[in-house]
C-alpha cells in the first residue's frame, strides 16, 4: 500500500504578517517557510505506519503545488523520511485549483491513503483534502485524530461535537487529519538530510488553472482599544463592568 501526504509550504507561525503593492500581495521578505505543521504531523504518522511490521505500507510520497522556490521545504520532508516527492509546477492559488492540480497529478498513481493537514496556516481554508476526494470520487473522513492499519484495512477515529467516532472506510480514501494524529513531528536526522539530496523529486507540469476565488486585498486588523485594567482587590468592579458596560453577564 502507498500513502500520499499533501503538503503546503506556509510562513512560520510566528511570522509578522505584512503586505506590499498597495496591500494586494503578501510580503514574503524575510519570511521563514515551513511545512504546514499539520501536514508534518500527517507525514510523521505515515512514516510510523510504514515502520510497523506487517502494516503493508511500502511507500510514503509527499506532493506539493508550488514553484521551484518551495523545494527546500520538500527536501525537508524527504529528510524527515518520505520516500519520494512530487511538485506540481504551479503557483498555489485558491483551494479549488490546488486540489485539482493534485488530483490530476496523482489520479493514476494508485495511492491507498491520501492525508492532508486540517488547515494550512496561511489562508485557513481547511478545504483542499475534501476537494481532492471529490475530484477523485473517493471517500473522505475529516477531523481525523488517529489512523491505524489492522489486517490490511485502515481504521480511523474522528472528533465529532463532544465526542469521538471510530470508522471503517474503504481504501482508497482521503483523511483530513488534526490534533492527535501524531504527538510530535519527526525531526530530520543528519543521515536523513544527506539522503534527501538524492531521493527522487518529480516535477509535474500543471493542467490549465481554474481559479474560483481571488484574494484582491489585505489589511492588518485595526488596533484594539486599550485594555481596561481593574485592580486585583476590586474583582467586584470588574463583574459590575461586565454586567453594566459590556452587558454580557
Amino acid at each position: 500500500m502507498k500513502i500520499l501526504i499533501c503538503m503546503s509550504n506556509v510562513p512560520d507561525t510566528t511570522t509578522k504578517v505584512r503586505f506590499k503593492d498597495g496591500n494586494t500581495v503578501f510580503d514574503t521578505t524575510g519570511v521563514q517557510w515551513i511545512i504546514n505543521p499539520w501536514d508534518e504531523l500527517a507525514l510523521t504518522r505515515a512514516l510510523q505506519l510504514k515502520e510497523e511490521p506487517g502494516s503493508g505500507i511500502e511507500k510514503v510520497t509527499v506532493i506539493t503545488v508550488g514553484l521551484a522556490d518551495v523545494e527546500p521545504t520538500i527536501r525537508k520532508a524527504l529528510a524527515i523520511g518520505a520516500d519520494d516527492a512530487i511538485r506540481v509546477n504551479s503557483q498555489a492559488t485558491d483551494a479549488y485549483d490546488v486540489a485539482r492540480q493534485i488530483a490530476e497529478a496523482i489520479r493514476s498513481e494508485g495511492y491507498d491513503l491520501i492525508m492532508c493537514g486540517i488547515e494550512s496556516s496561511d489562508y485557513n481554508n481547511s478545504m483542499v483534502g475534501g476537494m481532492i476526494s471529490e475530484f477523485l470520487d473517493i471517500p473522505s473522513v475529516s477531523s481525523v485524530s488517529s489512523v491505524t492499519v489492522e489486517n490490511g484495512r485502515f481504521k480511523v477515529k474522528r472528533e465529532i461535537d463532544g465526542g469521538k467516532e471510530t470508522l471503517s472506510v474503504t481504501a482508497p480514501f482521503v483523511a483530513i487529519v488534526q490534533k492527535g494524529i501524531a504527538l510530535e513531528p519527526r525531526i530530520p536526522s543528519m543521515r536523513g538530510i544527506m539522503m534527501a539530496r538524492t531521493k527522487p523529486l518529480k516535477v509535474v507540469e500543471p493542467v490549465a488553472p481554474e481559479v474560483l476565488v481571488e484574494h484582491i486585498r489585505y489589511e492588518l486588523p485595526p488596533a484594539k482599544a486599550k485594555c481596561r485594567m481593574v485592580a486585583e482587590d476590586n474583582v467586584r468592579e470588574l463583574v459590575q463592568l461586565l454586567h453594566t458596560e459590556a452587558k454580557i453577564i
Partner: peptide
C-alpha cells in the same frame, strides 16, 4: 463552519464548481 460544514463544503464545492468563503 463546524465539523459538518468543514466535512461537506469542500466536496460540494467541487460538485457545484462553487468557490468557498470559509469561516
Amino acid at each position: 463552519n463546524n465539523f459538518t460544514g468543514k466535512a461537506v463544503a469542500p466536496r460540494l464545492s467541487v460538485k457545484l464548481k462553487a468557490g468557498v468563503g470559509a469561516g
